[in-house]
């Protein structure tokens, strides 16, 4: 199993010029790895809506969008997998599966140890679905998984951390929005 940070470090090496939308835990780590106008920390968020936000962005412009979502968030909006599958958008959804809600004290999700997010994505009609349980697998396959036709779902098994707080975004949301819109105009 890999740490959340290790998973994002691999992502940082292969994101190219795609927009990266981070949510919850990833929103706190990602700015330390990449902080450009194409990096959008979706904080504060409506939990679960990251992939849907990313879908809209991906449909709006062609450069490609990567959304880093947690398993808890994914469970809150499972239907988005079917919505996304119906759209030929350059969207890459990473599901960081640690089986728990880190920022509320580490309680397990209702699906911990049972739900197979890769199977759910395939079952909803997502054509390209990848699942990696180790850092070595993710490192070896990230380049291929993050290129080509979307939508794509990538499930990564990551270690959970206890005692975490909801991260703060690197800058006010209004500034993030302005930077992003200027960069993709």
């Amino acid at each position: 199993m890999m740490t959340h940070r290790q998973a994002l470090e691999v992502l940082a090496r292969h994101r190219g010029n795609k927009i990266v939308v981070t949510t919850m835990t990833s929103g706190g780590i990602w700015p330390e790895l990449s902080d450009t106008p194409l990096d959008f920390a979706y904080l504060p968020s409506a939990m679960g809506q990251g992939p849907s936000l990313g879908l809209g962005l991906a449909l709006a412009q062609p450069r490609g969008v990567i959304v880093v979502n947690g398993d808890g968030c994914t469970l809150m909006n499972l239907g988005c997998m079917a919505t996304i599958a119906a759209q030929p958008a350059p969207l890459f959804v990473l599901i960081m599966d640690n089986g728990l809600y880190e920022v509320t004290g580490g309680q397990p999700t209702a699906a911990a140890g049972r739900a197979d997010f890769a199977a759910i994505a395939r079952g909803c009609g997502i054509g390209r679905v990848y699942a990696y349980a180790t850092l070595e697998e993710w490192t070896a396959n990230a380049s291929e998984a993050l290129q080509g036709v979307g939508p794509v779902v990538i499930v990564l098994k990551v270690e959970g951390r206890m005692g975490q707080k909801t991260p703060k975004p690197p800058r006010p949301m209004s500034e993030q929005i302005s930077r992003l819109r200027d960069a993709i105009a």
């Binding site: 809506q49 849907s52 936000l53 990313g54 962005l57 412009q61 919505t83 819109r181």
Partner: peptide, 18 residues
């Protein structure tokens, strides 16, 4: 969309994208 909360999120992404 499958549920209406998604609609606001998708619309938000579209708007951000111009």
């Amino acid at each position: 969309v499958c549920r209406e909360g998604e609609a606001f999120a998708v619309a938000a992404g579209l708007w951000l994208g111009g």
